[in-house]
Design a protein around this nucleic acid. Structure first.
Lengths: 180, 180
DNA sequence: TTTGTTACGTACCAATCAGTACAATTATGG
DNA sequence: CCATAATTGTACTGATTGGTACGTAACAAA
């Protein structure tokens, strides 16, 4: 088992338990790794583990979502791709957003840059694509903010109501609105 | 100090730390009460404290928001009032939604009824008001779901970006859209 | 003033927490 | 094969966890 293999597992633990709730016991259970290995890969303990997870998430979204949004020649289809990737990533509403979970807790302050950077990058990349798709500056900014926030809200509501359809419906509505 | 005075303070602790993160130490610090008093008021421990907080929140929203939405003679002004109350309650985006925080964690399952009930009541009350304001059944349901989810998402994004304006803007947009 | 109840602080409990130390194992490369 | 380094399990640490026990205040009604 390598460090790179552990990070996604850590992600699941933090996603489900939050930072404080993710006990070393839960982490060893999920990863199958003892403390020895864990502290060998992450000498900084939980803090370093969480940072690694955030970095991996950021890297994934950067490569799969933000960059295509920024650089895609065809803006509308880049937006369509974003929605598809987001649907897959969040398992159609059955999975929660780790960065969102962190944002709500007081851990937020410990990972300020990463939390802020993730959402800002998303919003700005989407606004850029909307701009290139012909929207005004103001309209693009408003629609982008609204879309990012709707995705977060839909994940929360879907989990609260145990109804993943809330998320699916939201993505569809977003598709209609952003590509109109 | 009475039990009723303690509940709002408990609410703040759970809001800021989440359920797992709200240690008895943090609770005694915030309330100024020793364990003796705490367990005198809440023999069931943290679980009972959290339940009391959720009940209080639900009671507040029921009286201040849901009931007016359901029974208000003038539906549009009931909706306007809802937005004003929500803005005040969440301190214009500087305060986070405890029920939303619970919904994202695994505590969700322990307080299933209360979490689910809160959001379902809100959505349904709003949908009813929209219906009375002249919308079709389908349109009312969609707009209500979208509004509730946007409020949650806006709280998350506002906190993530440290920008309460996100929340304020969202409420304004909601006002325009719901009252159009 | 006496009596009974409600409120509260403190000392304690076993369990668990994050983290450390270190020996044993497993790969790896020469 | 051998040596060196990268992994991993286990036993431990002191601190903190939620919760209990119990003694003591404050209070009311009589």
């Amino acid at each position: 088992m390598e460090r790179g293999d552990v990070v996604p597992l850590l992600g699941e633990v933090f996603r489900e338990h939050g930072f404080e709730g993710a006990s070393l016991a839960a982490i060893t259970a999920r990863t199958g790794l003892g403390k020895g290995s864990l502290y060998h890969f992450f000498p900084g303990g939980k803090e370093e583990m969480a940072a690694a997870v955030l970095a991996e998430i950021d890297g994934w979204f950067e490569a799969q979502v933000f960059a295509p949004l920024r650089e895609g020649a065809d803006a509308p289809s880049a937006i369509r791709d974003m929605l598809a990737k987001v649907d897959a990533y969040f398992r159609s509403g059955r999975r929660v957003c780790l960065v969102g979970v962190f944002a709500l807790g007081e851990v937020r302050d410990r990972f300020s840059d990463q939390v802020e950077g993730y959402f800002a990058a998303w919003r700005d990349a989407l606004a850029g694509a909307l701009r290139r798709a012909g929207r005004s500056e103001a309209d693009a900014a408003e629609q982008a903010e609204e879309a990012v926030l709707a995705i977060q809200g839909a994940l929360t509501l879907a989990r609260a109501l145990r109804d993943p359809e809330v998320f699916t419906r939201t993505l569809e509505r977003l598709g209609r609105r952003l590509l109109a």
